[in-house]
């Protein structure tokens, strides 16, 4: 069963850095990578939601992965990138910008190089990880971006929305 799951993780990943750590997300979840741009703050949102940007006429929310992972906030510089991810939220496809320190490369990780995430000791919630990819001498933490987005905060966000609806209409 686990074997199978790991096997399914095989494929291309976009890797990026948060601090000194390598992270990877499946390339098919990535829509595009853009440089940092002005983010409009949106009130009444969790801290890790930095706000929204205008991506060629589309308004997309921006999440700071550092904050989401409980890491120290870092000032944005010219290396800071936004990875626009394509995710399925509540059954509908949405775009979400993820702020990372900088993007690294697209790598192909084969199944045997992927190990299941450690049960303990990981710096971030193991639920967000699908596995640990070994590439040359590095270890890339493979992230489940949908899991991140569907974590409580987001769920709460949407639940809140429903409550609002019933309350106001």
């Amino acid at each position: 069963m686990e074997e199978l799951q790991v096997k399914s993780q095989e494929g291309k990943y976009l890797t990026f850095y948060l601090g000194n750590e390598d992270y990877g997300i499946p390339i098919l979840k990535v829509k595009e990578i853009i440089g940092m741009m002005n983010i409009t703050y949106v009130p009444r949102t969790p801290e890790f939601i930095k706000g929204v940007i205008n991506l060629r006429g589309k308004i997309i929310p921006i999440m700071d992965l550092r904050l989401k992972f409980g890491m120290k906030e870092k000032e944005y510089n010219e290396r800071t990138c936004i990875v626009v991810a394509e995710v399925i939220i509540n059954g509908s496809q949405r775009h979400l910008g993820i702020v990372v320190d900088t993007v690294s490369e697209v790598i192909n990780i084969i199944g045997k190089d992927i190990e299941p995430p450690p049960q303990f000791g990981a710096k971030i919630d193991e639920n967000f990880l699908t596995g640990m990819g070994k590439v040359k001498d590095r270890v890339v933490m493979l992230l489940d971006i949908e899991q991140i987005i569907n974590s409580e905060e987001f769920v709460a966000l949407f639940n809140n929305m429903r409550e609002e609806e019933t309350a106001t209409v």
């Binding site: 409009t40 205008n54 308004i59 979400l96 987001f154 929305m161 106001t168």
Partner: peptide, 23 residues
């Protein structure tokens, strides 16, 4: 329109892009 993500912020009817390109 603001994304679904912000639907709960119903005191915003949406967004617009201003002259400087900011939302």
């Amino acid at each position: 329109p603001l994304g679904e993500e912000f639907k709960n912020l119903n005191f915003f009817s949406g967004s617009s892009i201003l002259a400087d390109g900011a939302v």
